[in-house]
Write a protein that binds this DNA or RNA. Structure first.
Lengths: 210, 210
DNA sequence: ATATTTTTGTTCCATCGCGCATAAAAATAC
DNA sequence: GTATTTTTATGCGCGATGGAACAAAAATAT
């Protein structure tokens, strides 16, 4: 029983019967359901059970299963971008700011109850992408955004003298994204959080120091 | 209509009606079916259609859906290990041997008909792993094997003087595996093969040169 | 108070998915 | 030629899945 599922009374309500559930909270629960079992492995009944809504209400609010999934995917990316921004745009040194990305990501991957769920994109969207152009598009754009964010940070490190002027910021960014994807993959298959953190630490040191 | 689906006549046959299909070929087609739609997205009817067998025959030969999947996963890893072996254990210089791994992998990821399917493990097993301890186990072991193979190759490069003695072969191996996983992810979401190859090239150069 | 609007909740229907039971076919053993 | 063995092939049943229709509820507008 989460708090905040009920709609807040501060919204201007139009005319009919008020919604029993907050759309954002419902989407978050739907996202958690997809997160566990993947797109194909999650039924509308599962989502209905997770949100407390019933199927017709779900349909009226968010459309069909595909529509619900696309919205949860977009929401996930938004939170991921925010995480990147918070981690990379601070005053930390390069290695520390990268570790902030990986630490915050691991917190996400090991969040929720039950075994680690990994990254929502790597854990659910990659499988669905093969038969779904819209998912392909969202995932591609998302990872390119991560690449760009990392690249900006490496560039900044060059101008600040933390990184050799000859370093290739773009390629380092690709390796930083790959590191994130590797953590995501390994988290979902049962790796211990501490060992993943140690892995990230070593990879970061190699990317920054080497 | 593939050739080699029919059983070869050279096997000693026991007593009853002979099998109409070669188990290995059938498993390969089942693997292709899973590869496209993932574990949850593939039904036994899909597999029956892909193999040309009917459900009772599938069941008698390989067990239920889960059993079929585990066998295809094990087969995939075996071929992947062989690929690694062929690429890394030759006389090539370090960077070239790594590129052989990525080139052979891309050939696999872009194989089959239709859009690129990416890596079987990343594309199907990661999603399934969350609810399946056996899949978790197989995937974990598989990636650790890749890590070890890369690490051996980096160590060899150190003894052969291609890599600085101070280089951390273990961490470089983690980055090499992460590079492979990144290619796998991006291939399934529509990236062009040429751009992925260029990506791999740059990452390899940074890992070896930097 | 009545009408209108919007959402909720129940129910039905057609389809799919998977296991199982049973019949038919194709080989060998005697 | 008949029996036995192993596999193929067909069909049935039950539960799950997803869409839609319809009635009830809870708010506002007049």
């Amino acid at each position: 029983m989460r708090d905040g599922t009920k709609i807040s009374a501060t919204e201007k309500r139009s005319r009919g019967r008020p919604r029993a559930y907050d759309p954002q909270a419902a989407l978050a629960q739907a996202r958690d359901a997809f997160w566990k079992a993947g797109y194909a492995g999650t039924s509308l009944d599962d989502i209905a059970a997770a949100t407390g809504m019933n199927r017709p209400s779900l349909r009226a609010a968010f459309g069909d299963k595909h529509g619900i999934y696309l919205r949860t995917l977009a929401d996930y990316w938004a939170s991921k971008f925010e995480l990147m921004h918070a981690a990379l745009d601070g005053d930390d040194r390069l290695a520390n700011s990268l570790m902030k990305v990986y630490d915050a990501s691991l917190a996400l991957y090991f969040g929720g109850e039950g075994p680690a769920r990994g990254c929502f994109v790597v854990g659910t969207a990659i499988t669905a992408a093969h038969a779904d152009v819209e998912v392909q598009q969202l995932v591609t754009e998302g990872f390119l955004t991560l690449d760009a964010a990392f690249a900006r940070r490496f560039e900044r490190a060059k101008t600040e003298g933390e990184l050799a002027a000859a370093a290739d910021a773009t390629t380092l960014a690709l390796l930083a994204t790959a590191t994130l994807q590797s953590l995501a993959v390994r988290a979902r298959t049962g790796a211990a959080r501490a060992s993943l953190r140690a892995m990230a630490r070593k990879m970061v040191d190699t990317l920054c120091g080497g």
